[in-house]
Design a protein around this nucleic acid. Structure first.
Lengths: 348, 348
DNA sequence: CCCTCGATAGAAAGCGCTTTCTTCAGAGGG
DNA sequence: CCCTCTGAAGAAAGCGCTTTCTATCGAGGG
């Protein structure tokens, strides 16, 4: 039925071993033989049997990229960059590329574990976890256990935009400095003269949310400014929209709103406009991440740019071993304050 | 080293065959035995060896989702929906879920073929191709050949948002009615009184681009209105931005611009504003797809909504066999005109 | 009371590849 | 001219699972 390596061997009048060696290119083969084999491969239209290959070699070409939400450009950009980097730097078994696959956890810890198990089952070459994690200790422990097992089995583990699990030195981690970013943003607002700042945070149980919130509070505390109202919600537009009403109900005199990210900020802007409030005339709005559409918002969003593309690419290279992991296994990636039209001095 | 099925068998005092049957649940096993086996699995922390399983069974749990650009929400939304649908409807080998993986082709035909080969190699259970394809006959033929081979090998092939390759009845296809959508949009503009309409099209060699353009032209022709300037470019913001200058150079009196999609439309809006032109006061702008941010654009974008989520989910179910393919293997998915603030009657 | 049948479980033969261990042929050294 | 050494290729033993074919044990039917 299907063409096997043995068929190719017969056609090229060599042993299966030789064909395998030609295909994997990890053993000296005479040029003439190699050509004969490759011709046979071509003529028979042979396709390597991946499972068989992985079974015998005890590894596979699969690199798993786990993201919280594939429809969110934040993850899309990082995943895309990682996938490109992996494609460029890696030559897998069978002379082919590594197969970088992205798996959408939807932020659910169960699905995250399911995918990790699936990848473990496939004997994946590497796993990249992108985005912040839940802070639930039980989940954290389960994940840490899985990651340790994966590492033991020879799978490279890379964390991108997520803090390393305590005690897990086997994984390389790229950590966004959300805290400092949020602090810079708050300082910018404070510098403009804002004293009543509302905050639309992400889901309460996520590391990213906490870090951003902490940075924000640090800045306020340092300036001796009282914290404004805070509302939690998912990282989407609807959340920003709904939270704005809540924020204004708690403090009708807000002069600025900081959003969990740019998508949320868009929702905030929409809600403000619906109430007849102008941006930044009546209320300043700031986001986070600097997603592609943020520069086109009206007014353009002040935000904190995270080098998503670079981080993703870096994670990809770490996953393939094309790049050495940072000393200590962990590296902090800074964000950069980008000031645009959505923030200005408050009235009066 | 690693725990194998034989270890589990030994521990549960049964044969490997029995363990396999318990795990796959496709053969009657006495309840007491099953429990004993499951306990052993648990105690030993056993993880099935995917490659070995796939090799012996000649299929795998992998479902490949190929997209042109994972960082583009258009694909992100569809892929996300497909992945959810697959996760819900499918119980794969080993009692686990199917592993839906998304692969980013970056719109490159070579990468598309590479991924298809890789998936073929993995004996994927199904493959979903999302988004329009290149129209290059050579590439089309190569892809068609690959897809036929995949289908022959028992892999389900689903096309989502891409027309079926001629003569390939083995694939189920969900086709967006780009032509009608574009026509509706143009008719809307014509109805408002626009007679000088610029068009920022997608890449010239893609089916989606051509269909949208054709629908647009149909409407103009039917109304006896001369075609305005057209510029081609990629589906991104920069393209819209650059194209706008070109469009205005070719016809400074344009009263409307139709963009290849919403992302491009955002670039168009930005460029118009930079030139001091108001939207829709001076120039109306329309997009396509109705991406999430479009409603938040200022003014909100008039566009053609494509049911991306539904189509993606449908594709996922087709891929797992949870849903029967449409009669004839092909189904047309209509778009819906969504009129918002970015289009209005032209001045005068 | 013997035989047949249904329900379970075991034995064993692969699935298609990789890789270690050998073999073999020729090249050069003594 | 024989022997050792090196480079190239073959033989064969798995990798860990699935699945067909058998075997076994009771339970009913005749």
């Amino acid at each position: 039925m299907t063409v096997t390596l043995a068929d190719v061997a017969a056609r090229a009048r060599v042993s299966p071993a030789t064909v395998s060696r030609v295909l994997n290119g990890n053993y000296p083969v005479a040029e003439s033989t190699r050509e004969r084999v490759l011709r046979a491969v071509d003529e028979l239209d042979y396709v390597l049997n991946g499972p068989a290959s992985s079974l015998a070699a005890a590894t596979s070409d699969l690199v798993g990229v786990l993201v919280n939400d594939i429809a969110d450009p934040f993850f899309g950009i990082m995943a895309s960059a990682a996938q490109s980097a992996i494609g460029e730097s890696a030559t897998g078994r069978g002379g082919g590329e590594k197969l970088a696959v992205v798996c959408n956890t939807g932020g659910s810890p169960e699905r995250e574990l399911t995918y990790l198990t699936l990848l473990q089952r496939q004997r994946a070459a590497a796993v990249i976890l992108m985005g912040g994690s839940l802070e639930d200790p039980e989940h954290l422990a389960a994940t840490a256990g899985k990651l340790t097992k994966l590492a033991e089995a020879g799978t490279r583990v890379v964390l991108c935009g997520r803090p390393p699990v305590s005690g897990d030195a086997s994984a390389a981690a790229l950590v966004f400095d959300n805290r400092t970013g949020a602090r810079l943003l708050a300082e910018h607002l404070l510098g403009l003269g804002h004293r009543r700042i509302g905050y639309v945070a992400g889901p309460a149980d996520r590391t990213t949310t906490r870090h951003r919130l902490e940075g924000h509070r640090e800045a306020l505390a340092a300036a001796g400014v009282a914290e404004g109202p805070t509302v939690h919600g998912p990282y989407d537009r609807a959340s920003g929209h709904a939270a704005t009403a809540e924020l204004l109900a708690r403090d009708p005199h807000l002069t600025a709103v900081v959003a969990a990210n740019d998508t949320v900020a868009l929702g905030v802007c929409a809600a403000l406009r619906e109430r007849g409030l102008s941006i930044p005339g009546d209320v300043s709005v700031a986001g986070f991440d600097d997603l592609p559409f943020s520069v086109d918002a009206v007014p353009a969003l002040t935000t904190v740019r995270l080098p998503l593309h670079e981080a993703g690419a870096r994670a990809g290279r770490l996953a393939t071993g094309a790049e050495e992991p940072p000393a200590g296994g962990r590296e902090t990636v800074p964000g950069e304050l980008v000031i645009r039209g959505s923030t200005a001095r408050p009235r009066g």
